[in-house]
């Protein structure tokens, strides 16, 4: 565990905490994409199947459980909570995510390190995570008044991805035989997806303006 990896994981954790707090405190999930949250739920379920097969560390297991539990909590709130579900932007959150899920799954069937159920599902989760934020970014574009917490949520998620790239560079330089090309390429794609958002986020922060993304 290096400092970049730890910082990346913490950003990921903070992003989820920010989202949980925002929804819970304001009793509103306005601007939050249920589709992205559901994609993350699929990502975490497929990736963390190894909770049942291998133990890496208490840290690893705890984080996996937190990510799973928090994502399902958010989905539950958005779908079923009697106050919160009313605030969901159903008409705006129209990204057809089956067009992300199917290609990612087919790609994982073809491009993987080992043709086993566990490994294909793990690879699928890597590909799907790279594009899972897209429904959220599209929804932000359609939202006129992006509240600070939603903006911060996406910014923290993007920071987590950027820090993971630094983690991979560090590991590549310090660990013999450490390489995972599929993860690296997907991770770079995933980070590129955020670049546009980062630009507008930092600009609005510097100019002390409310964040808005051009359509």
């Amino acid at each position: 565990m290096n400092i970049f990896r730890l910082a990346g994981d913490m950003m990921h954790l903070f992003s989820i905490i920010v989202l949980l707090l925002k929804i819970n405190a304001t009793r509103s999930c306005r601007g939050v994409s249920l589709k992205t949250q559901e994609l993350y739920a699929i990502v975490f379920v497929c990736r963390y199947l190894d909770l049942f097969t291998s133990f890496i560390s208490l840290y690893n297991t705890t984080m996996k459980l937190i990510f799973l539990l928090s994502t399902f909590t958010i989905i539950y709130w958005m779908r079923f909570h009697k106050v919160i579900r009313v605030t969901y932007d159903r008409e705006q959150d129209t990204f057809r995510y089956q067009f992300l899920i199917l290609p990612c799954f087919l790609l994982a069937l073809v491009l993987n390190n080992e043709f086993s159920a566990m490994e294909v599902l793990w690879t699928f989760s890597i590909y799907l995570e790279a594009v899972a934020i897209l429904p959220q970014l599209v929804l932000l574009q359609r939202t006129n008044n992006i509240d600070n917490l939603t903006g911060n949520y996406v910014f923290l998620l993007g920071s987590y991805r950027a820090l993971y790239i630094l983690n991979w560079i560090y590991r590549f330089m310090t660990e013999p035989n450490y390489r995972q090309y599929l993860v690296w390429i997907s991770g770079i794609v995933q980070t590129i997806v955020y670049i546009d958002f980062f630009y507008y986020y930092i600009r609005s922060w510097r100019n002390n303006e409310k964040l808005s993304l051009p359509a």
Binding site: H12, D50, I56, N60, F67, N113, E114, W122, N167
Partner: peptide, 10 residues
């Protein structure tokens, strides 16, 4: 054969 890769990242 099976590599049984252990994925240690989240």
């Amino acid at each position: 054969g099976s590599t049984g890769a252990v994925h240690d990242e989240l």
